[in-house]
Design a protein around this nucleic acid. Sequence first.
DNA 1: AGCTTCGCCTGCTTGC
DNA 2: TGCAAGCAGGCGAAGC
Length: 267
Amino acid sequence: MPELPEVENIVRGLREPLVGRRIEDARIRCRSLYRRGSLRVGWLAGRVIVCVERVGKNAVIRLSPEGVWVINLGMTGRLEIGPAGGRPPRAHLHSRTRLEGGDEIRYYDTRRFGHFYVAKTCDFARELNVGPDPYLISPETFRRILERRRAPIKTLLLDQRLISGIGNIYSDESLFFAGIDPRTPGSIVARRTRRLLSRIRTVLDRATAHGGSTLRDYRRPDGSLGRFQEFHAVYGRRGLPCTRCGRSIQKITLAGRGTHFCPTCQR
DNA sequence: AGCTTCGCCTGCTTGC
DNA sequence: TGCAAGCAGGCGAAGC
């Protein structure tokens, strides 16, 4: 469940070892790794990595003279850099990309929900339906997005076309700190957009600074675990006392997702 | 068009 | 103790 803070940590860790490196050869084990419309990874050969950045929950590797390699890690995707000649564990290893100088990028994904998207164009955000980043969107734009929607705010926050980077953990955490019931229709929340956006950014900032949340699979690029799960206020705390009021945290299902909240503090 | 549900996939947890 | 069912969820497709 790499969300924005986890992907941000991953991207920061990849930047130093990857920028400036030339790709010699890339292979994948299974075609279902490609998102619809993607070029094949063989197309990457000969190109030089010019930058590594995050767009929503995607890691984006930009290439020279042209092209982009977008990696969505799904739930359990993991990127690793190591010597190309070695014998890495093969379980759930789906892709290997050799770099000039002897290293390779390895992509592991237990549940195989992750995807690659390789393209010439830089307009991948439109092609992949990736909406505005929570750090870049203005409160006014965010309000307009929510204004006409009747769906629960939790569902809207999870929709990457509307705002990108927030997943199940950080939607629950943000709504707790904003004091908003996750079932509240978007149109009602629109009045409190400024506060919600501010809390979203604070939660994402803190999570990023703590290296993200490790529930099971996520590792930072250096192999260490994220620590933010120790600070979750509601996520994964069903039945435990609310840190603010002491009443029991409840868990319900919204948009098919486990949703945690405090019925007293969130209205 | 907006909203909801389903299916993909594996491994851990729960219950009998 | 062992096995089967249940649960977890990012995201696209399908259905209403």
